Structure formats: C-alpha cells, structure tokens
Computed example of a mutant assay.
Amino acid sequence: MGTPLKEWDINIYRGVLTGYNEAFIISTEKRNEILENCQTEDERKRTEELIRPILRGRDIKRYGYDWAGLWLINTHNGVKGVMPRIKIEDYPAVKRHLDQYWDKIKKRADQGDTPYNLRNCAYVDDFNRPKVIYPNMTKYMPFVYDDKGYVTNQKCFIITGTYIAFLTAFLNSSLFKYCFRDSFPELQGGTREMSKIFFDKIPVVKVDNSTEKIFERLIENIQQNYTKEKAISIDQRLFDLYNLTDEERSAIGFVEIR
C-alpha cells in the first residue's frame, strides 16, 4: 500500500568521502586549536562556519544519535553556478593544519581542484536541509531526523525532500521493520546493506502537510527523550494511517532489533 519511494519528491545521497579522514575529520580539541590560531575575528568567524559537526554511521540510533565530538573541515569544491569552491588562502589556520598532512592529501584520489579541497559533491548544500540520516550498513536499522545541519561521512546516507519527519517515523517504525527488513540483503553477523537501490521499491502511504506537521512534533518530542512508549505511540498512528486490523497490529507488535 502506498507509493514507491523512487516516485516520492526525495533524494537519497551518500555522505562525504574525504580521501584522508585523519586530516579532514578532527576532534573538538583540534577544532578549538585551529580557531585559536586564527589571526582575526573575521577569519575565526569564517573558519567556524567552515568546520562542521559530523556524524558517522556508528553514531546513529533509533530517533537519535551519539555525537562523538567530531568535525569535518568542509573545504568543498563548490557547485558550478551555485556556490564557489573554498579557497584555502582565505583560511590560513586551516591551511596550516592541512599542511601537516600534505604528503598524504596531495596523493589521494578523492580531491577537488586542489589537494586542500574535497571531491566534487553536487548536493553539498543538502546537508544544511532537514534530512533523515541512516547508516549504510546496520543490524538495527536506525534513522534520525536532523535539522541542525550535521554533515555525515561515507558510512551514512541522507534523505532530503518532502515529508521528511513522516518518513523518519515510518522508517523507524515496527511496520517498516516487520514488512521490509528482508528487502535489504543480510551480510555477516546480521548486518544489512541499506543502499539506495533497495529503498526505491518500498511503498509508503502518501501524507499531506497537516500530517507532516503532526509528525514533526512527535519526532521532536521523541528525539529529545526517547522512550519505548513514545515509539509505540508513533507506531499506533502509523497503524491508523494504514487502516490495519487488530489482528494485523497484533501480528506486528513492537519490533526492536537487538
């Protein structure tokens, strides 16, 4: 029942591939050190905007995440006709940091116009939009709604577009896990591969803007303080949308993958 996700107004993208994480993904301590090395207030402000918090696949939970205090030096390669490439000369403190890894970053295949730049990423601005984040390989099939502009590494996918809060609820639901867990190939140890091609055929009931607003409030509440009871309540709303019988609701129950 519903419309296959490939026909929804959404995009599914992989996270950022740096080519050399040791240089471009840094701790909070290193970020603070780089900011302290900025020579002017203007440089510091621009550098703060450049260095973005990043989530990895292992950080994602059902309706939440455990941020590891890591940051991406987002020296993106720009998007033609949309935004210019980051020029490292405008960020001297960042350049001094990356220069320590010059022998490594200059050799990597995944780079932009200069070794200081990340590879081309036409959807780089989508990380600023409300999105669903989920790991590319996972046993637990967790999804989290993000409207705080986190970047993700290549071990994650993001979904942007319409009705993102509702999709977060659906993908975290017992209904999704009960019906569609086997749509994703199982790897060693019960891990499943969550690539885009396996989402395309999954049908999801279409909703309207008023329903999306309801789920936005529900998602905000459960992500502030996750409880099993809140997750069950969201499940029940989805069961109602799908007009499930008592027998069907009982058969699905509450699915928690452990």
Rank of each mutant, 00 (worst) to 15 (best):
N128D: 15
T18P: 11
Y140T: 15
G2H: 02
E29S: 08
C179K: 09
K201H: 06
I51E: 02
I12F: 04
E36V: 08
T138C: 06
R129Y: 04
D103C: 07
F157M: 07
T28S: 11
G57E: 01
V79A: 01
I26W: 00
F198C: 06
E36P: 00
K106N: 08
F180Q: 00
F24P: 12
K30Y: 03
P92M: 03
K228G: 00
N32L: 09
S210V: 10
P203Q: 01
N128M: 09
N11F: 14
D208C: 05
R52A: 06
L171M: 13
N21M: 00
Q39L: 12
Y13C: 11
L72F: 02
E7H: 09
F215D: 10
D99C: 08
Q100C: 02
V255K: 14
D147N: 15
K148F: 08
K131Y: 03
A169G: 14
D9P: 01
R31L: 13
F143S: 12
Y163M: 12
I158N: 05
D59A: 09
T162R: 07
D126F: 10
F127W: 10
M83C: 12
R96H: 05
Y13Q: 14
A93H: 02
N11W: 07
V204G: 03
S183W: 06
R85C: 04
R249K: 15
D240E: 15
C156N: 13
V204C: 03
F198Y: 15
R119P: 02
Y242S: 09
K131E: 00
E41A: 13
I159K: 04
S233C: 08
K206C: 14
A169P: 10
C38E: 06
A169K: 06
E89L: 06
R237H: 09
G19F: 07
I12V: 15
A23P: 13
N77R: 00
K201P: 00
E256M: 04
E7V: 06
S195F: 04
Q111M: 15
G253C: 14
R192Y: 08
P185W: 00
I234N: 07
I197S: 09
G15V: 13
T168S: 05
Y226K: 12
G253I: 13
K228H: 01
Y178C: 02
K80W: 01
F143K: 10
T47H: 05
D240S: 12
S27R: 01
E256W: 04
D147H: 12
N32H: 05
F143Q: 06
I158G: 02
D113A: 12
R56A: 13
P115N: 08
I158D: 00
G149T: 12
